[in-house]
Design a protein around this nucleic acid. Structure first.
Length: 622
RNA sequence: GGCCCCGUCGUCUAGCCUGGUCCAGGACACUACCCUUUCACGGUAGUGACAUGGGUUCGAAUCCCAUCGGGGUCACCA
């Protein structure tokens, strides 16, 4: 073991004694935040790279690097198993899979079931709520060596003290009780606690300065006395985050802690705890893992990107509506949503940020909430590959050039597993620019083959827009393929691909004709005539095209033949095919925008095309 | 407010550690043009940044200091 030859004291176990272990430790109180996804990705990539390099040296598989998931469900009131499962599913969907952690069954591409996660290292439950006995053993230990003590202050009392401190423009620090002596077990307090008096347990901070070595930020020094005696066990008997993290990271062999910068200020507490603790099993002091605090992800306006932004957006929509229409009240809204009146009223007043309610309100009012959670991006038609690539770039870049001298910025998770390193993680907070994400997503979709895209789009529609899919499929399989191919270069997301095929979703007799477009059809245009000939109207061309198309039988109705036919007709009329295409577009879609005209007509089918053209011709005569 | 972190185009960033090759490169967005049957796609070009002020140096985006600006954190949440 790690015994120094010179002083014989056991200081720390060298990291080389076991695998690199990183962890992502979400709190199961909602969906996976996009920032959490990035943290998980970086932790994953770090462990993967260590493992890859270990195997390249012919090491034992699994001994080079491991990525672990731990569920931090010590907040009894807010945690749920459902949320934990949702977070695991989001990670799996992104392709971020864990070596150790709760198990999750996922269906592979071929439909077969596969399990992610395993109890591979015998480190106990990956759910903190099931590890309470262990935390208590360490808390007893700390109390026995005079590094922790029960405290009996009520929440109200502390609140009062805090408010006084704020009023006096001072920072509140919990005053260490006079009857506690650092390093001496406070038997009187321990006795009181044993008798069942409600209490929390506080850690007695030592008075030395704490230096946090951060792989990204460098050394961060915190002066002695900056951190007060913080709570390590709540009145409900559960450990606080700070305590559970330190115990579990040690017991689970975590070597590298990578998390968002918002945790930087907590780190001195963790380091202080590590310095005070000794393992109960091996009697070895706790190790301090390597820390790396990643830059935060911000909104475009510079505020922190938070789940609450969704609640804010929904609340604003309600308030805007209430300002315009006085009949709208929280009570009326609650009734129409079939939700509790008080809850809705509180939500509108800003008393709670219920995200489910925010979603209901947004759907009701037809407003789009900002995408914050992985789940939001997923149902809005982003693909995991694009999300991974984009969030990787929020704070990290490979620092490589393409042969043409441009920066390499398109890559996949496997590339990250091979090249990720902490020293290329930036320090500056990044604003989340959805326009760039959309561009990445569109590029990814466009790079797919038509077949691949069609399959992806179909799966997306089946899951999130089944009615749209059903309508599209009524036109037949081949029509769906044609439409999917037409959508591919036009879609930034799988969802907005729907916009490109709106024309195929309306019934033939419900096509809305744009008044200006109809006017244009009625107006003679010199471009519609052969060189020097008399100007023709769009209607004339439409009639000619309609007649010619009608001559095409059902079995010949395909993009290729339609294109040839229109080309021939245009030639006979002495005009370009474009002059023919525009009136036809208006005729079948109601406006002048659609995919290629031959594809559009082919996807619509013979009977829809002809009946729409007839309806348009009838309208235009009026 | 205390403590801590950060500061290159509108945005993500390369360059910074190891000053000169940087009147600062790429990507997204934007603008123009080309391609084209509309919309897209694709192609070409353009607009656009070293926060400010002092040092150090022959020379600073790069090193030092100050100012200003942004952010995080100060719970029996994690």
């Amino acid at each position: 073991m790690a015994r120094s030859a010179t002083d014989g004291r056991i200081r720390s176990v060298p990291m080389s004694s076991g695998p690199v272990v990183t962890r992502f430790a979400p709190s199961p109180t909602g969906h996976l935040h996009i920032g959490g996804a990035r943290s998980a990705l970086f932790c994953w990539a770090f462990a993967k790279r260590a493992e890859l390099e270990h195997r390249a040296r012919s090491g034992t598989p699994g001994q080079g690097g491991r990525f672990m998931i731990r569920i931090e469900d010590t907040d009894q009131a807010r945690s749920s198993d459902e949320s934990a499962r949702g977070i695991l599913e989001d990670l799996a969907w992104l392709g971020i899979e864990w070596d150790d952690g709760p198990t999750l069954e996922v269906a592979g591409a071929d439909g077969s079931l596969r399990t992610i996660g395993a109890q591979a290292r015998d480190v106990g439950s990956y759910f903190q709520a099931r590890r309470v006995a262990m935390y208590n053993a360490y808390i007893e230990y700390l109390m026995s060596i005079g590094r922790a003590y029960p405290a009996f202050d009520s929440a109200d009392e502390l609140d009062k003290l805090r408010k006084m401190a704020v009023a006096a423009k001072q920072t509140f620090k919990y005053p260490r009780p006079a009857d506690f002596t650092f390093g001496q077990p406070c038997t009187a307090r321990i006795e009181r606690a044993k008798k069942g008096e409600p209490h929390v347990v506080r850690f007695a901070m030592d008075s030395s300065a704490v230096i946090v070595r951060d792989e990204i930020l460098g050394d961060v020094k915190i002066a002695p006395g900056e951190v007060d005696d913080f709570v390590i066990r709540k009145a409900d008997g559960f450990p606080t985050y700070h305590f559970a993290v330190v115990i579990d990271d040690e017991l689970m062999g975590v070597t590298h802690v990578m998390r968002a910068q918002e945790h930087l200020a907590n780190t001195p507490r963790h380091v202080a705890l590590q310095r005070a603790l000794t393992r109960l099993d091996t009697k070895q002091p706790f190790r301090t893992p390597s820390f790396a605090h990643m830059p935060l992800i911000m909104n475009m306006d510079g505020s922190k990107m938070s789940k609450r932004d969704k609640a804010k957006a929904a609340r604003k929509a309600v308030k805007d509506l209430m300002a315009k229409d006085t009949s709208v009240t929280p009570a009326a809204l609650a009734a129409s949503l079939q939700q509790d009146t008080q809850m809705v009223a509180d939500f509108v007043a800003g008393e709670n940020d219920n995200l489910d309610l925010a979603g209901l309100i947004a759907a009701k009012l037809g407003v789009t909430l900002p995408e914050i959670e992985v789940w939001d991006f997923r149902r809005n038609g982003y693909v995991p590959e694009a999300i991974i690539n984009f969030i990787a770039l929020l704070g990290w870049n490979p620092g490589m050039k393409l042969p043409d001298g441009k920066d390499l910025e398109k890559f996949d998770a496997a590339f990250m597993a091979e090249h990720f390193s902490v020293d290329r993680v930036g320090k500056t907070p990044a604003k989340f620019d959805r326009a760039k994400l959309q561009s990445f997503n569109g590029d990814y979709l466009n790079a797919l083959t038509d077949q691949q895209f069609a399959a992806k789009w179909r799966a997306f529609l089946a899951e999130y827009e089944p009615e749209v899919l059903a309508k599209l499929l009524t036109r037949g399989e081949s029509a769906f393929s044609i439409l999917a191919a037409a959508v591919k270069p036009r879609a930034k997301t799988l969802r907005d691909g729907i916009n490109a095929v709106r024309f195929a979703l309306v019934a033939d007799d419900e096509v809305a004709y744009d008044a200006k477009a109809l006017d244009k059809l009625r107006t003679p245009d010199a471009k519609n005539a052969p060189q020097g000939g008399t100007p023709r109207t769009g209607v004339e061309l439409l009639n000619a095209a309609r007649e010619r198309l009608a001559s095409l039988g059902q079995s010949d109705w395909a993009a290729g033949t339609i294109h040839t036919l229109l080309e021939q007709l245009a030639q006979q009329l002495g005009i370009g095919i474009g002059q023919l295409a525009q009136p036809l577009r208006v005729g079948v879609t109601g406006a002048g925008v659609s995919p290629g005209i031959a594809e559009t007509l082919a996807a619509l089918g013979r009977s829809s095309t002809l009946s729409r053209l007839d309806r348009c011709l009838a309208l235009v005569r009026v």
